[in-house]
């Protein structure tokens, strides 16, 4: 059966990008305000799922030709390596470090090792969610 998804598809083209950008903003803002890797990751994957709904698995796989299982693995690796980085400095595992820098345009911002950890979480969440959706979705 062929359905007419024109409205959904047109909206999705715009909305998906807005959602992804917003999710990135939430991910980075998660530092001193509500947000972070988990929420950001869920939101990004919801954008991809919206694409999946509007188009189909094949089209989306064409747009984003990635293996989401590798997302999980690399996210985990990033998080664990960040956490165990503190072993090198002889402090307890997962001890974080931060500093403040002045960058042109962005101004006075804080840099934090927790962001790297959170990036790992972000990748894992996107990877896990998309793997689940694909696993259930592809065999119809």
């Amino acid at each position: 059966m062929k359905t007419n998804d024109l409205i959904l598809q047109t909206v999705t083209k715009v909305a998906a990008f807005v959602i992804i950008l917003f999710s990135l903003s939430i991910f980075l803002g998660g530092h001193y305000s509500p947000g972070g890797g988990f929420v950001g990751g869920l939101m990004t994957s919801s954008a991809i799922i919206l694409l999946l709904l509007a188009y189909d698995l094949k089209t989306v796989a064409g747009i984003l030709p990635v293996d989401y299982k590798l997302f999980i693995a690399s996210g985990l690796l990033l998080s664990v390596l960040t956490a165990s980085g503190s072993l090198l400095f002889g402090v307890p595992l997962m001890t974080h470090a931060f500093t403040y820098v002045d960058l042109p345009l962005l101004g006075h911002i804080s840099l934090h090792t927790a962001v790297l950890f959170d990036l790992g979480v972000y990748l894992v969440v996107v990877g896990v969610t998309m793997t689940i959706i694909q696993t259930i979705g592809e065999s119809e």
Partner: peptide, 9 residues
Amino acid sequence: LLTGIILLF
């Protein structure tokens, strides 16, 4: 944990 992650690759 680290071994498990590397094995995933």
